[in-house]
Design a protein around this nucleic acid. Sequence first.
RNA 1: GGAGAGAUGGCCGAGUGGCCGAAGGCGCUCGCCUGCUAAGCGAGUAAACGACUAAAAUUGUUUCGAGGGUUCAAAUCCCUCUCUCUCCGCCA
Length: 415
Amino acid sequence: MLDLKFIRENSDLVEKRLKTRKKDISLKELLEMDEKRRNLQGMLDEKKSQRNTINKELPKSEDKKTLIEKMKKISEEIKESEKEEIELSNKIQQILWELPNIPHESVKISYNEEDAEILSTWGKIPEYDFELKDHVDLGIEKNILDFERAAKIAGSRFALYIDKGARLERALINFMLDVQTKEHGYKEFMTPYLVNADSLFTTSNLPKFEEDLFKTQDNLYLLPTSEVTLVNIHRDEILEENDLPLKYTAYTPCFRREAGSYGKDVRGLIRTHQFNKVELVQFTTPETSYEIQQKIVEHAEEILKRLGLSYRKIALVTSDISNASIKTIDIEVWVPTQGKYREVASISNCTDFQARRGNIKYRDKEGKLKFVHTLNGSGLATSRLLPAIIETYQKKDGSIEIPEVLRKYTGFDAI
RNA sequence: GGAGAGAUGGCCGAGUGGCCGAAGGCGCUCGCCUGCUAAGCGAGUAAACGACUAAAAUUGUUUCGAGGGUUCAAAUCCCUCUCUCUCCGCCA
């Protein structure tokens, strides 16, 4: 959520920058309502002030009858105006809830996601002297993945991991958590997989993106990413500057409806309703958030390096960064059979956007309360990683080699 | 699922209709005193939204889990909801 005062005082700039995300964003209505609301509030405050004065006099007064009559009248007027004020506030709030964060000036302006800037590439694109099989064929052939039975159990876009497939997935999760906790200093959490609406409002998954979420009959939602639970750990809390940055990580499954992606990536693990992810979240001061984003990128990259997978980093353009983010860097891993890089991580700096929504503050060294900055990044999405691994490490004889670093986790070195 | 108790400031906790933004304590900050790893004394210490201001000072309003109601007036009375705790039942 943006600061209304800031919008008011910098309306032209804000509108101009927001338009770089989406052409049709306009602040006109918001500003008009804000103006109207403030006038109304001024009037209301004055009347309430009168009411309070009379209220104080009343118990001591001789002529209670006259005062009570006066109060009745004022109270009624207040009630009327208050109704209007509340209505207006609600509308303003609604607009504010839906406005995205202001893109950082370093983010390339474009309405076409293909314009993303390639920041760097790592590793050689592997070459093969035999016919490659994709992860679906490999998985079925090796009996480590089963999509037909998954469909029987749950429907399309689900996966059943079998035997070494399941163990490889679990190994990946453990490997990633170990690196992030033991080497990069993150604190590990196990979080609920069902979350309430308030939590989703904080992270900006609501109100705008409800169609992406699974909802239960108890008004709880299936977790779309553990960014939600990790960020909400400190909702409505005041942190101490000395404790920042807080570095949190969690493995959770993630559930997404994938509405509107019909026909896209229908095959295999690339786009499923349920996938596994290790998430990285940090709470920081405004002064440090920008450099910390770079660090999170490195923390995610480290996983790919050790797995020996080729990847590249790209900086998303203004229209492609997520609602809460001012700048997003994606890490994409090379998927041999697709002949292209696919997203495995997305690292965003949300500045104070989520902190404002979730009321997450910190007390600075002078004792002043400020909103923290929140950042999140995948560290990484396992279900995108596993296809890359088994495709990349397939051998001519049909076997799949397990990357060195994973072997102590899997207990086997080939499939 | 059944029965009961509760939700107040950073924390603990008092407060049952106007004098309550709210006693008292803890914590924290500043000052004094003292000389010994501490104690004592004094002062200060909520936030949000406005107005004013270069900024501050100042000032108005709001806020005692959330929402609604009664009343001239609600932390306090009534209703609904949420959450927490205890007991019983069921259960991994």
